[in-house]
Design a protein around this nucleic acid. Sequence first.
DNA 1: TTTTATCTGTACGCTAGCGTACAGACAGAC
DNA 2: GTCTGTCTGTACGCTAGCGTACAGATAAAA
Lengths: 242, 242
Amino acid sequence: MSVTPSPQQNHLLATLPREVVERLLPHLELVDMPLGMVLYESGDTLRHVYFPTDSIVSLLYVMESGASAEISVVGNDGVIGVALFMGGESTTSRAIVQSAGSAYRVLGKRFKEEFNRHGEMLHLMLRYSQALITQMAQTAVCNRHHSIDQQLCRWLLLSLDRLSGSQLAMTQELIANMLGVRREGVTEAAGKLHRLGVIDYSRGLITVRDRERLESLSCECYAVVKSETDRLLPCNAPHLTH
Amino acid sequence: MSVTPSPQQNHLLATLPREVVERLLPHLELVDMPLGMVLYESGDTLRHVYFPTDSIVSLLYVMESGASAEISVVGNDGVIGVALFMGGESTTSRAIVQSAGSAYRVLGKRFKEEFNRHGEMLHLMLRYSQALITQMAQTAVCNRHHSIDQQLCRWLLLSLDRLSGSQLAMTQELIANMLGVRREGVTEAAGKLHRLGVIDYSRGLITVRDRERLESLSCECYAVVKSETDRLLPCNAPHLTH
DNA sequence: TTTTATCTGTACGCTAGCGTACAGACAGAC
DNA sequence: GTCTGTCTGTACGCTAGCGTACAGATAAAA
């Protein structure tokens, strides 16, 4: 579990040409990402851009009522803080650590200097942004049309892809917050998957036993997001991951 | 209804500095946008970028089953084809004309030349993209948590903002496709609004009688999208529109 | 070991929205 | 005027998911 962190663990950083990384490297700061840490709140001016290595961050929208819904999820395949280079400097969502680990961060100002050189960094970030857009769009569709059972499968797969191994530390309560449903709904869905032998779990630790089955039980949304992400960011394609 | 079309009717084009517009102008082609016209299909390589003047275009996701859901809506406040400059060249959604009118279009290649000069165009497009992202995120949340009644209000308001006047030509069947719900659900919701004196309608023509009331009946999603769009693209702020 | 907090399981009535079916209303074509 | 297709209204049983309540299980703390 305790791999020595390296910027190369983040697929975006690993994709950048050497000279770009070398310019960025002195400004990369390794930070610990404990579960529940809020990177930024809705409306906050973003100070840093984060590149997760082995952590996962959710972009979560929290409504006036307190109810929430996950908009998208970012791991070592991406970056948190696209609003910085998109020009808005803030977003209407919250970025919160969903799975503990580490990340590298850069001051927004430094990052924008590199972005504004209009080189590889710019194009890579734009492609990543499109992948993010795809994920958001698919979330919208999934929320409209699919059952909790299917959505849980999709969510587990998306999270699993961003971790090594087949375990994830996550209570049903937290998953419910992400999906924007009741905790009881997740309990039921998880129970079904357990009875089918697809997953095991106890007190916040989920182990996937039959990933193939999980994929077949998921709605099409997972596959759509995955293939589109692989298309846009070949660096994330399975055969290239480390 | 028959205003002479001018590129300035599109707020993005109207915002660009004169020299940018002058470079673009010779390549702008005025096109008719009849209801139901498909600008591109999921997976298509985009050939043009479209700037609506008085038409409205929906970005619609169509599932394997045929069910659909609107991801976002674009009018004279925006542009269709962000995937071109984001680098993906295609998207997983369909762009379809939801309200007939006109638009100016540019060949993707020409457009990218201007975008790659890294001037005003680039920054404006990125800001618009963030506004689009906000709208998608809010759609996801709204699909999860709000009733058809509320969503219909939001949808009417978003459409109305992109048209002049207080009428929109739109059957309940079409609205249902956009919202991703049954036509009967829309009939019921529209019936309620009618009984409250908020809207009138008959055979595909909706007239908003009490816009203020409509806003109060809508969920928070409309206001969030509106204020964030105004923040990101001040050119769209009410006092500046023509 | 006992206590306490957290996590998970289950139950039950309720409601929004679905699937389906059909009927009336209106506009345009013939 | 009649016909035909489109649009809208209504009804009815069904299901997924909600709100609420509570009980058992397990880990950590005392």
